[in-house]
Design a protein around this nucleic acid. Structure first.
Length: 771
DNA sequence: ATAGGGTTAG
């Protein structure tokens, strides 16, 4: 363009602009635009050039100029309409894109196969399947259905709207399919959680010899990650390497995401390290992965590293940090995160604000949580559910219910998670009927209980002493076609354990074996626990031996089983073995061991254990630990030492300890002290039947059966007939009650002896064997 | 036309 005299026709300028469109050369295009204006009306009012200018500015994403030029166009053809609709679509102005479609038709311009993909994209984004269907009908009528671009867009639109069958029908009906069509089908499945089908289509695509793109692999990796499909995903990674696909930050992140979701943290770290151009998403992925796997330290180190590289945290980073604070109940960290959000205006994001509420709730600052919640203006269902869950978790069922109604008044209808929390709140507060009522209400309102609803109910019933009902609910869940999780089975086994119901426990063991779930550590631990509490240490040991990598809870369960069964020697042997394996015992281990020693009368071992627990293992003794030792001392006749320990310990003695002392006093004819202790016990908890049992125990230990009867009459008078946590025996017409599972008392052998002398068997009341 | 990250319930 050296000379203005040179005769250049409008077509040349058009061609030049087209070149700028291809290159997205905004500055060159603007210079050409200037030259056109300079050349006067002959050029500037040329329809062809005007249209090209609109297309140019539209393709370069200059919205205002493109719109202004388009508005001024005298003749709007299909090309300029396509450009403007496409631009609106790219900018996310989906409504405008659809309005454009309607206007162009009103002006007599009909959409072609360049406009339709954009229109369909807008339908998908707005989930307007009705409009999408109409467009689909139009494509069939006009005969665009052979176009791969239109076909792919239809698949995508149906996929985004959740109509997978329609998407599949379009896919199957396509005469010609390119990579994008295949990819759209796979992506649709992944986005709708139908990961298995996505993987199937991916394999089909490969066997048809279609050359994969990064998009194919990214969606495949996503499906593999969602399914925890380790081998599939690794294979995808290998295909990417062999195919030499460029590993940009987006593709790299999807590999990183896969490894982190399947729990291969080291591989995720490796993927992170080889991504050259790390962006905020890359960092966030690794950080959230650390948080998900409880590696809070590593997550925070990453944040510091980000800071040192002058990268700013965004909403997602903060959500991870706040989740880390919530998980570890780290209020200091949580407050730091909260402050960062305020300083950087991140609390306007719902997800971040919700994380702040959750963080305060998990740090037991429910009032702060409520305060932040109140300040959130754009609450969504998740925000409401977080607050609801917080109240439910604390057993504040009334508050939870208030929130549940309030959210509905504000137009947010509760989902399964909301209902689950309300039910949990009631169960935590012991309101079983209210919980069950909610459970049926949700169903009549059309909200289907999921596996968590069922498990919550099972756990709640079991924990409130309704084991049989818990087991019935487990059966109902199966009848409803809900597959139990490890947690559901653990809860059911715990119900069997609490009822000492070997019959039910065995049935669940069968279930677990049939479904190949024996090797899951939490389930194996529950089985050992159940067999142990049911007195079948033989079976417990068989399950225990089957577990390959044994962890502390499993040892604790087995030790507890031996201890309860009076096999203190076995329990102590296991304790030695555990230490040889390099596992540190915890306070539960010692509770069980001390109880075992107490139960078996191993006085020296018990006292030695207590000393080594404090001095060597630095375990702060609990009331239960003291209880066992007091009982041991009482048993070996050292009442004075027992009393000294009780005075010295940093707790107010509980009913168990007083019971031990009481029995020892009666046995030593220290009746004055015994009477004092009895009185004290009843003052402590006048309505607790366990205390009457302890008093009666003490008389029984001293052989004063008349007094035992008197205490029983007193109980009857007070209406205290149910006494959880104790066992009874029947001798002729007399029923004598004893504490069972009482760690400070072990009169089982004495009872056996009495019964044997009477030629009778012992009968345990299964329901109350264990408290 | 297709692609990557964060918040809720056991």
């Amino acid at each position: 363009m050296e000379s203005e005299d040179l005769q250049i026709g409008p077509e040349i300028f058009g061609e030049l602009l087209q070149g700028c469109v291809y290159e997205r050369a905004i500055h060159t295009g603007q210079q050409i635009h200037a030259r056109i204006l300079k050349n006067g009306d002959f050029f500037a009012r040329n329809e062809y050039i005007d249209t090209k200018l609109v297309i140019f500015y539209a393709k370069c994403d200059v919205l205002d100029v493109a719109n202004r030029l388009f508005f001024r166009l005298r003749v709007k053809n299909v090309f300029s309409w396509a450009a403007v609709i496409g631009l609106n679509c790219r900018m996310g102005f989906n409504e405008e894109a659809l309005i454009g479609l309607v206007e162009m038709q009103q002006m007599g311009v009909f959409p072609d196969n360049f406009v339709l993909p954009n229109v369909l994209k807008a339908c998908g984004a707005l989930a307007l399947v009705g409009v999408g269907r109409a467009v689909h009908g139009y494509t069939l009528k006009v005969g665009f259905d052979g176009c791969v671009f239109v076909g792919s867009s239809l698949i995508d639109m149906y996929g985004k709207c959740g109509f997978l069958d329609d998407a599949r029908k379009v896919f199957d009906g396509m005469i010609e399919r390119n990579v994008v069509a295949w990819n759209s089908m796979i992506v649709s499945y992944v986005q709708n959680g139908i990961n298995e089908e996505a993987i199937k289509v991916f394999h089909e695509m490969r066997s048809e010899g279609i050359e994969l793109t990064r998009v194919s692999l990214m969606s495949f990796l996503s499906a593999s990650a969602n399914l925890d499909a380790l081998e599939e995903g690794k294979q995808g990674h290998a295909i990417a390497i062999i195919g030499g696909l460029e590993l940009d930050n987006i593709f790299g992140s999807s590999i990183l995401n896969f490894y982190s979701k399947v729990g291969l943290i080291e591989d995720a770290e490796l993927a992170f390290s080889i991504i050259v151009e790390k962006d905020i998403v890359t960092w966030n992925l690794l950080i959230s992965s650390y948080v998900r796997h409880g590696l809070v330290e590593k997550a925070l180190n990453m944040c510091h590293l980000m800071k040192s590289k002058n990268l700013r945290f965004d909403c997602v980073t903060l959500a991870s940090i706040l989740a880390a604070a919530a998980d570890t109940s780290n209020l200091k960290l949580g407050k730091e995160g909260h402050c960062y959000c305020i300083r950087n205006n991140l609390e306007s994001d719902v997800a971040v604000a919700s994380s702040i509420v959750d963080m305060y709730a998990k740090c037991e600052r429910i009032d702060d949580a409520k305060g932040v919640f109140n300040s959130i203006t754009n609450r969504d269902i998740v925000t409401w559910n977080i607050l609801l869950a917080a109240y439910a978790d604390f057993g504040l069922s009334g508050e939870a219910l208030r929130i549940f109604y309030q959210m509905q008044l504000e137009g947010v209808s509760p989902n399964v998670i909301s209902w689950n929390s309300v039910i949990l709140g009631f169960l935590r507060n012991g309101q079983l009927n209210e919980a069950k009522d909610m459970f049926s209400q949700m169903q009549s309102l059309g909200v289907q209980p999921n596996v968590i609803t069922w498990t919550t109910l099972i756990a709640g019933l079991a924990q409130n002493g309704h084991g049989n009902e818990a087991i019935l609910v487990f059966q109902n869940m199966q009848e409803a076609g809900i597959k139990p999780t490890a947690a559901s089975i653990t809860c059911a086994l715990s119900a069997c354990k609490d009822m000492a119901s070997l019959r039910n426990g065995r049935a669940f063991h069968g279930y677990v074996t049939r479904h190949d779930l024996c090797l899951l550590t939490p389930i194996a631990t529950s089985l050992v626990d159940m067999y142990g509490k049911c007195g079948n240490t033989h079976q417990a040991k068989r399950v225990f031996d089957m577990v390959l990598s044994k962890e502390l809870p499993l040892y604790n369960a087995m030790i507890s089983g031996y201890a309860l069964d009076g096999q203190a020697g076995e329990a102590l042997a296991l304790y030695k073995h555990l230490q040889k394996e390099g596992i540190d015992p915890d306070n539960i281990t010692f509770t069980n061991l001390l109880y075992g020693c107490n139960h078996a009368g191993l006085i020296n071992e018990g006292l030695e254990l207590f000393c080594s627990m404090i001095s060597k293992h630095r375990v702060n003794p609990s009331m239960e630990h003291y209880g066992c030792v007091v009982s041991l001392l009482c048993r070996c006749g050292n009442l004075d030492e027992a009393l000294r320990l009780v005075v010295k310990m940093p707790y107010d003695p509980d009913a168990h300890i007083i019971g031990s002392l009481l029995a020892a006093c009666r046995a030593h004819q220290e009746n004055e002290l015994a009477d004092y202790l009895s009185k004290h016990l009843l003052q402590l908890e006048p309505e607790n039947p366990g205390n009457y049992v302890a008093i009666s125990n003490a008389y029984a230990a001293a052989g004063s059966w008349n007094e035992v009867s008197k205490v029983r009459d007193l109980m009857k008078e007070k209406g205290l007939r149910k006494y959880p946590g104790c066992s009874w025996i029947q001798i002729g017409e007399e029923v004598h009650v004893f504490l069972a599972g009482d760690r400070s008392h072990s009169n089982t052998e004495e009872i056996y002896a009495i019964l044997a002398s009477l030629g009778m068997e012992m009968r345990f009341n299964a329901e109350i064997l264990h408290s």
